[in-house]
Write a protein that binds this DNA or RNA. Structure first.
Lengths: 336, 336
DNA sequence: CTGTTAGCGCTTTCAG
DNA sequence: CTGAAAGCGCTAACAG
């Protein structure tokens, strides 16, 4: 029924006080007589008062909004990350403004500008470029990087121990006797993918197995020829195992194997990175490096919330540990 | 380097104009000489001006923020819905504030209050209760309901033809000779689930097959005993087929069948509702009613955007059609 | 075409 | 304990 919005002045008038007193009563800051407080509370309730966040933000020059920019909300990994962030923020009575930036530098920068315009209390980002963090930081907005690190300004971060995850996965295959292990890795300059490549190499080095660069296949996101290239690699290089360094590539690899009629694990072994539901459901199950995705989101949000409380807190990089989940897709090599 | 924020007044001073002229120049509304505009643009660029969204919202009493409240961001269905909404909003230069409310009435109401406080230009919601929409609507905020309808105030909506989806799925099983089809359905009073139940019943009625109420199992979200109850139903009622009316229930059913060692489709047939990736990957594939989830999100956002342009637009309910995707999990009944 | 003025709703000194 | 007053940054009349 109330068409226009009820303001503090309205409830002040209703309760016979000034707006300042009303502000103090409802925000709980400063002295207000119990009597006045009760009257104001009642009036606010009765009139259906909803504080105007913009007015408050304008006055206080900071909001309860946290900007979140992820690469691809359609991907389970980022969706779970966002879910973890959202849950944590909501518990602390903050709101999440969520944007999916397609790892596009321009879109990412546009997001940063939007978050700045909103006077976001902080920003969480899966970075594709360093300019966004730089712009935000320069304007006094705290940034937390998740999944990978890119910023050239100091900021908190939550990442996975990608090297270790990839090393364990590769080592698992090497221990099973595989010597020609194809690596499917995203074609980026991100620390996440670099770490996974490094882990693959390290595992080889540790056992003194030479790395054949022809077995390493960098594939861009959403590359339309991804599966064709994987099929070509399989046929030209005859790997006995595949390590797919993210969930999309694992999916592609699995589809290619199915299309070519190659059996898991008799004809070829497969390890994925990022344990998504289908990997536990297909037969045989896919051996995978599991990431605590939701928890990464939670940690990132916590880091940001802690910093809003104590801005002098030293910057932290939290490195979470992956877990190798062994299933039926990996087995010892057949004798050649 | 710029510690505090650059304001319109700053760039006006820099360019030797008043703040109003600066406002006109940068917002593009009203007359400004080409010369002044150029100087102002340059100054804004040079000083790194970012407009203050709160000030603008306060003044104009409306923002470029759309509130979105979904039931469970961790569920693919809602994540995809959110992704569709986000993409559409971003294209129109709106921001999405996303909250996952666990279908909890109190959380949902709290979200509504937050969106109101932010002067959201509109709200998209997968409703669990009618009070949120009512509160928003009463305060002049447009609401679009997605996936199900609940509001007792007029609002736009985007839903699936659940009756038809369930009818086709059930009909498919009946046509294969099944006469004892278990229905696993979410235990809600939502239109979505009611529609699916109705479709199940309608398909039976059309063929004159009696419905045995003992085969209908309502299961609450996140019920810890969901799988135990499904297993019990299978053993006590001996259905020859299962229709699981959402993706979570399909997952549960599949796990139970696997645990009990029942083969698809020889021992029992299975149809899911909402075609998620694993259903196409397991062997045999799961026959499923596919929803255009992402598209539903897009439509909801479009409906809202159109209404912000033309508030007198008549309310619309868009009903999208599902598609039955037949895979190997369904087959004719074995002769008893 | 441009500047002046006023005010959006709230919080925060500062006097009382 | 309370009210008056000022101002956050922006925009929209309204005169010039």
């Amino acid at each position: 029924m109330t068409s226009s919005h009820v303001t503090l002045a309205d409830i002040a008038r209703e309760a016979g006080t000034s707006a300042s007193t009303a502000s103090r009563a409802l925000s709980g800051r400063g002295y207000v007589s119990a009597d006045a407080r009760a009257r104001l509370r009642e009036a606010a309730e009765r009139l259906g008062y909803v504080p105007n966040a913009s007015a408050r933000t304008l006055k206080q020059n900071t909001s309860r909004v946290i900007g979140v920019a992820v690469s691809d909300l359609g991907n389970q990994f980022y969706a779970n990350l966002a879910a973890g962030i959202e849950q944590t923020l909501r518990e602390a009575d903050f709101q999440m403004v969520l944007v999916s930036d397609n790892s596009d530098e321009l879109q990412e920068l546009a997001c940063a500008r939007t978050f700045l315009a909103m006077r976001a209390a902080g920003v969480i980002i899966t970075p594709a470029d360093r300019t966004a963090a730089s712009l935000l930081s320069r304007n006094g907005v705290e940034v937390v990087e998740v999944d990978r690190r890119l910023a050239d300004v100091p900021c908190d971060a939550v990442v996975l121990d990608n090297d270790r995850g990839a090393r364990e996965a590769t080592r698992h295959l090497l221990d099973l006797g595989h010597r020609r292990i194809a690596l499917l890795v995203a074609d980026t300059d991100w620390t996440s993918d670099a770490g996974r490549l490094q882990g693959y190499v390290n595992a080889h080095d540790e056992l003194g197995v030479p790395v054949d660069p022809r077995l390493i296949l960098p594939i861009a996101f959403h590359a339309p020829d991804a599966e064709a290239r994987i099929a070509a690699l399989l046929q030209e290089e005859n790997p006995t195992a595949i390590f797919a360094a993210n969930n999309t590539l694992a999916d592609h690899a699995w589809q290619v194997l199915r299309a070519l009629g190659l059996r898991l694990p008799q004809d070829v072994s497969l390890v994925g990175f990022d344990d998504v539901p289908w990997m536990a459901m297909v037969e045989p199950g896919i051996t995978a490096v599991a990431q605590p995705t939701f928890e990464m989101g939670r940690r990132a949000a916590q880091l940001l919330l802690h910093r809003t409380i104590d801005p002098t807190r030293p910057r932290t990089v939290e490195t979470l540990e992956p877990t190798l989940v062994v299933r039926g897709s990996t087995a010892a090599t057949a004798q050649p």
